[in-house]
């Protein structure tokens, strides 16, 4: 009995953490790149975007999971998009009430959360097949992963481009910012650099595993992928 609950706990934890690192929507699955590149020229914007997306993802996953047995298979995508669009409208008005400045900086990109393929992807791949609790955990994990990715981008771009972090100057007055990092081109470079880093880490890990033979961790991940 205790063993079973422990296993269930482990599974829940895995559902939660999977989206943050192993299946990170941006760095691993390359989903929802448009907002990650477009609005991450400062840390505050990146955080607002990440939190807004997390909220929409969480609410949409919950609702989709609640009504998953009522929706006919043929029209499910249209229904998911309607649910997502409703919550995006909510977030749009919410953000306008909380901070008008951030809302203006993000502009149409708040509305464009609707077509963020990471959200539709989670609704289709996970929430439509699992119960409410699990879907919530999954949405939180993937939302967290998305927010972290936004912050990674925003942090690098603001520090290099403006010499500040969330508005706090870091390098003193003589620092000349790399304005390219704030401009669109810089977004592509920074994301490319992050992907290079992740590829390098993955390759190094694979090489190490080949060297030491099949490790315990490796066996466990392959079992996870199988189920």
């Amino acid at each position: 009995m205790t063993n079973e609950t422990k296993q269930a706990q482990h599974e829940n934890l895995d559902t939660l953490t999977r989206g943050i690192w192993r299946e990170n929507p941006v760095f691993v699955m390359l989903l929802g790149l448009c907002p990650v590149l477009a609005v991450t020229n400062s840390v505050v914007n990146a955080l607002a975007m990440g939190l807004a997306t997390t909220f929409v993802l969480f609410m949409a996953s919950t609702v989709v999971s609640l009504v998953r047995k009522l929706i006919p298979k043929q029209v499910r995508i249209a229904c998911y998009i309607l649910v997502i669009a409703t919550f995006v409208t909510v977030v749009d008005y919410l953000l306008q009430a909380i901070s008008f400045e951030v809302h203006r900086a993000l502009g149409a990109f708040i509305a464009l959360i609707v077509v963020n393929c990471a959200i539709l992807g989670r609704s289709e791949a996970f929430a439509s097949k699992n119960n409410v609790g699990k879907s919530m955990l999954d949405a939180l994990g993937f939302g967290g992963g998305f927010t972290i990715a936004c912050l990674c981008m925003g942090g690098v771009r603001e520090v290099l481009g403006a010499g500040t972090f969330a508005g706090i100057p870091l390098f003193g007055p003589s620092f000349a910012g790399w304005s390219i990092m704030i401009l669109p081109g810089g977004a592509f470079f920074v994301l490319g650099a992050w992907l290079l880093l992740f590829n390098w880490l993955r390759e190094r890990k694979e090489r190490a595993e080949k060297f030491t033979g099949t490790s315990f961790e490796n066996r466990e991940t392959s079992k996870d992928l199988g189920t």
Binding site: L30, I180, G186, L196, N199
Partner: peptide, 22 residues
Amino acid sequence: SSVAQGAAVTLMVAGVLSMTFM
């Protein structure tokens, strides 16, 4: 190099393209 293949190098190229469009 195998590290750079795929999306990483594509994004770098897109960055250069974006700079030319500036």
